[in-house]
Design a protein around this nucleic acid. Structure first.
Lengths: 369, 369
DNA sequence: ACTCAGAATTTGATCGATCAAATTTTTTGG
DNA sequence: CCAAAAAATTTGATCGATCAAATTCTGAGT
């Protein structure tokens, strides 16, 4: 037989369509005895509500749209993918779905969003890689389309706009913790490898390092300048930059980096300069970091995903919360987690092949809560 | 005003609902003059068809379901994510959508698939990580739900089942090419670092290496055994394994590996043993390989995505092709592409800091067509 | 002019669910 | 025991599109 409908279930249970509907959507208003009878009928016939019909009637889709960025930026490019993954899992727990789409340009993306939203295919959007003066967020706000961005709007005005919901990783705090940890372990001259300024995310992370250095070891402006370098986000660029730093005699006790890419470069430069024991901490906790045994600040994307949905749906429900009514916080800053590892490669033992010079040290990890 | 409907457009253009519908779906049967008038009205009102309504009527969703695997297996875990990405882009070009879902177990996944399919939310599925005797594919076939798997069904019987559509990377050919390339470059003793057998994918890749070695350098069984090792898919495991191999004096001219993870381990072991120039080729072309300048066999996931959709939708259309009618091929083997790089790290120059000993060599890549 | 096939367009029904309002049943309280 | 309130259930309308069938228009052939 074809897929059973409410009608079939109703007939089977000797009730009306609406009662069946109520059992599914608002069980509390149905008398227990009736409810049981209907549920039995549902189970017996294997009934599943047709979501297209429901959406048509309710004018909503229980679906969240996420744009996959066409640009893949190397090592950290997978962060977005991991976020999508986490979001899908969390959405699932709220019986929401995640629909992906792609767009060639911001304008095209707006067009897609429009189409998805007006076609009642998607109730809300999650945007990534937003920037100051982003036409997409302006359009979304203007057209009253619910959305949350993963990433702060870095413009000063936007930051507290209650109409712009956002979730972000507290890079400052994460880097501060990482730096503090290195200091606790005995370092005093902790260096910073960052991205060229200005960079919203990058400057924020750097601020964490700076804060920790000032508070914990009373670093002066001059010392901070001497201990920090900037590099584009590429392994070879970072290697070169850090190598230059070391050659110039600005040798730190440890390094904190704005990304795993930079950290990998730093690791190579340090190893190459014979500093095999220089502690280095990256950012993003990518598979690369795991592979080479690099400590890193993890973005705890599952928590970001949870927060995203909380902003969108409220703490409990599974339908989009209309803003302005209940004024919950309009953004969430998530504290990242430091993942400490011991390097498991780049052993610079020359050409020895003796058994007593193990090529690989023990690999163990430990996560901060 | 609320979102305009066919009704509104019809009124504006002085035609009936159905004519508007025809302009959208079968423009050829509408008289040009009328068509233009309707199109003008559509543009003027900014009309978008409501997809839920269309789906309800047509009993299809133009949506493909993909399950995101909850397990993340290190470096190569991102391959699935990249595939999803490519699939989304290709689907977009066919005006199809990709819906993600997760499931805790195969049984749960079947339940989800059932729900998505019967709720008319998803027309077809793409499965990954299938295995011999997979209950999911059996269920899908039995229930006539269209699907394609990324990955061969490795059981002998299943392989040519016309009901089981699949797309896969021709690992054998990819590894054979890689091996041949190394031989062309002068190597004769090309080693193999693979996964413990039996392993469908792993054994297939190994077969490529074996073939190339037999055909091009006439390697004997004994030589093949001496040149190959097996390791679980972890960096440290691979490092250990290859280090053992080298210590035992089984030193190859070059290495081909079943994964980038293994290749990274091999790279570390080789460097550590002083073999800085040992050519190594991995598999998957992950960001890690790119970062460390490791050559690798790329899975050309965009082509896999194209092939997946071709199996599902035929070469042109945008609706699911019912199998059995037109008996196109039921599977596609995609030849991967070799990406050659020169290592850009692991420089074993001791502790020199001279400028003339560059820490980083030039990084250039080249793809085979 | 006139018929008739084929093209173009319109009309009425339908997909499967939920909403809003109406009706019936049950409970409460005097 | 009955009226009024509350709870439970049912009925009719509707969401926005497409399908199938009916109708009107057009142009070729005589």
């Amino acid at each position: 037989m074809a897929q059973p409908t409410v009608e079939d279930v109703a007939r089977e249970a000797n009730v009306s369509r609406q009662t069946v509907s109520n059992v599914i959507n608002t069980p509390s208003i149905v008398k227990p005895a009736t409810r049981d009878r209907v549920q039995a009928a549902i189970a017996q016939l294997g009934y599943r509500p047709n979501l297209s019909a429901r959406r048509l009637r309710q004018q909503k889709s229980s679906t969240i749209g996420v744009r996959l960025d066409p640009v893949r930026n190397g090592i950290s490019g997978a962060v977005l993918d991991r976020f999508v993954h986490a979001l899908t899992e969390q959405a699932d727990a709220r019986s929401m779905r995640v629909l992906l789409f792609t767009a060639a340009s911001p304008q095209d993306e707006i067009e897609q969003i429009r189409s998805l939203h007006e076609g009642a295919d998607v109730d809300a959007f999650v945007l990534t890689a937003t920037f100051h003066g982003d036409p997409r967020t302006a359009w979304l706000i203007e057209n009253d389309v619910p959305f949350v961005t993963f990433g702060r709007p870095w413009g000063i005005d936007d930051m507290d706009d209650p109409k712009h919901l956002w979730v972000d990783i507290d890079g400052r705090e994460g880097v501060k913790d990482a730096t503090a940890r290195l200091i606790d372990d005995g370092a005093t001259r902790v260096g910073w490898v960052g991205w060229p300024r200005p960079s919203g995310t990058g400057d924020d992370r750097r601020a964490g390092w700076e804060e920790a250095m000032r508070e914990r070891v009373g670093a002066s402006d001059a010392e901070l300048v001497a201990l920090s370098v900037e590099s584009y986000d590429g392994v070879s660029e970072a290697t070169e930059t850090v190598a230059d730093m070391l050659r110039a005699g600005r040798v730190p006790d440890a390094l904190v980096c704005a990304s795993d890419t930079l950290a990998l470069g730093a690791l190579i430069a340090a190893s190459s300069a014979g500093l095999t024991d220089l502690p280095i901490i990256g950012f993003d906790n990518t598979p690369v970091a795991e592979a080479v045994g690099l400590s890193s600040v993890d973005q705890v994307l599952d928590r970001v995903a949870v927060a995203t949905l909380e902003l969108l749906l409220g703490s409990e429900g599974n339908s989009i919360v209309s803003r302005g009514t209940d004024a919950g916080p309009s953004h969430r800053l998530i504290a990242p987690a430091l993942v400490l590892r011991t390097p498991n490669h780049l052993p610079l033992y020359g050409t020895t092949t003796e058994r007593t010079a193990p090529a690989v040290r023990n690999h163990h990890r430990k996560e901060t809560s």
